[in-house]
Design a protein around this nucleic acid. Structure first.
Length: 351
DNA sequence: TATCCACCGGAATTTATGGAAG
DNA sequence: CTTCCATAAATTCCGGTGGATA
């Protein structure tokens, strides 16, 4: 049934970008006189193709002429990480131990012509000094990708605000309409599935159910095909589609959890085990068990303030849900089926 | 309504790490 | 080897806030 699963990878780039002509146009225009390329603040909800749009448009641009460019994932990265990534992509050779100052200087020297740097998942960038380093590099135009442009601008320095408040700098990406997303799904289905196992109507159904969020739609289509295969169906059945959404979201969350370090896993598993808990209880548990949880580990237990940082990370990854305000706040895991591969609580029981 | 309280999250400060200079 | 310095992560400090309580 599935002829090419790579078509459904998050990293897969479609040959043509459908229903984003206007946005591609605006981005291209911002970059046109590359000698004075504009910065762009690109915003919109998760999974509607912000990353794909920039990669696609950047690909078109650099096919026409060579321009130094980079696409940097900034979520959870330090200033040094971002600069090293940028330097590597524009042809430099980061060693791994340069100072931020050195890196900034090296990048500047590498850019004898104007370049473009896309900062993906940049919601947390204001407030760090990453932007200071990047904006101090002449010749470098920035594309900032975030979810909420008001919040982003609100947190940024006045200098950065000014740089991103020029007319035409903002570019909003909306959710797809049902027929638009169905077109996108159709292109994937044609490439990755046997053509007698799906119908246009089913794709429209999925597009509607995921409210125009392309990433979830694509993952759901893939999950539906997997379910149909597992169940021995000849083609995708309504029940496969019905069950595909949980499977798709489950997979995205499981991946997110796996990418996080040990402290996050500890907190996650404590919450998952309890079902729902308030923060005082969570901290008590953590304190009780920290000796056994952290023995034989390089890491040591962390204090409450740091745990709060880990918890907000877990929440932003949609792994942990926070309900209620202030004193009566409760934590719970979004999908108890998502488990840490580290098997933390069984280690606890042995002790 | 007024006061209390838990606890979040920003900002400043400290600690840990590792490289470079003296 | 010791000292110094930069960075990132953790901790300390604390103001603000919205529900709880009386």
């Amino acid at each position: 049934m599935i002829t090419d699963s790579r078509v459904f990878d998050d990293e897969h780039m479609p040959a043509i970008l459908e229903h984003r002509d206007q946005e591609v146009g605006q981005l291209s225009r911002a970059w046109t006189p590359v000698s004075s390329a504009d910065d762009v603040l690109l915003y919109g909800p998760s999974g509607v193709g912000k990353t794909v749009l920039t990669k696609h448009t950047l690909g078109r641009l650099t096919k026409a002429r060579t321009t130094p460019h980079a696409h940097v994932e900034t979520m959870g990265q330090t200033t040094g990480d971002v600069l090293r990534d940028l330097l590597g992509q524009i042809g430099g050779h980061p060693v791994g131990n340069e100072t931020v100052e050195d890196l900034t200087w090296t990048v500047r020297n590498h850019l004898d012509e104007p370049g473009i740097c896309v900062l993906d998942e940049a919601d947390d960038l204001p407030g760090t000094d990453t932007l200071d380093a990047l904006t101090s590099i002449d010749n470098l135009s920035l594309v900032v990708i975030c979810h909420d442009e008001q919040r982003w601008l609100g947190c940024a320095d006045p200098a950065v605000q000014h740089r991103f408040s020029v007319e035409g700098t903002e570019l909003e990406l909306r959710r797809y309409h049902v027929d638009e997303l169905a077109d996108i799904l159709e292109a994937r289905a044609e490439l990755g599935l046997r053509d007698d196992v799906w119908t246009r109507t089913q794709l429209e159904r999925i597009a509607d159910d995921v409210a125009g969020v392309a990433r979830v739609g694509i993952q759901a289509l893939f999950a539906a095909a997997e379910l149909a295969t597992n169940r021995g169906h000849e083609r995708i059945e309504p029940e496969d589609i019905r069950d595909s959404y949980d499977r798709a979201r489950h997979r995205i969350r499981q991946e997110n959890l796996s990418s996080l370090p040990y402290h996050h896993h500890v907190l996650y598993e404590l919450i998952r085990n309890a079902g729902e808990m308030r923060s005082a209880v969570l901290h008590d548990r953590y304190n009780q068990l920290s000796d056994s949880l952290y023995q034989d580990r390089a890491q040591t237990p962390i204090g409450e303030r740091s745990r709060r940082n880990k918890l907000s990370k877990l929440a932003s990854y949609d792994l942990v849900e926070v309900v209620g305000e202030r004193a009566n706040r409760r934590y719970s895991v979004v999908d108890p089926g998502v488990k840490s591969a580290l098997d933390i609580l069984s280690v606890k029981k042995q002790n």
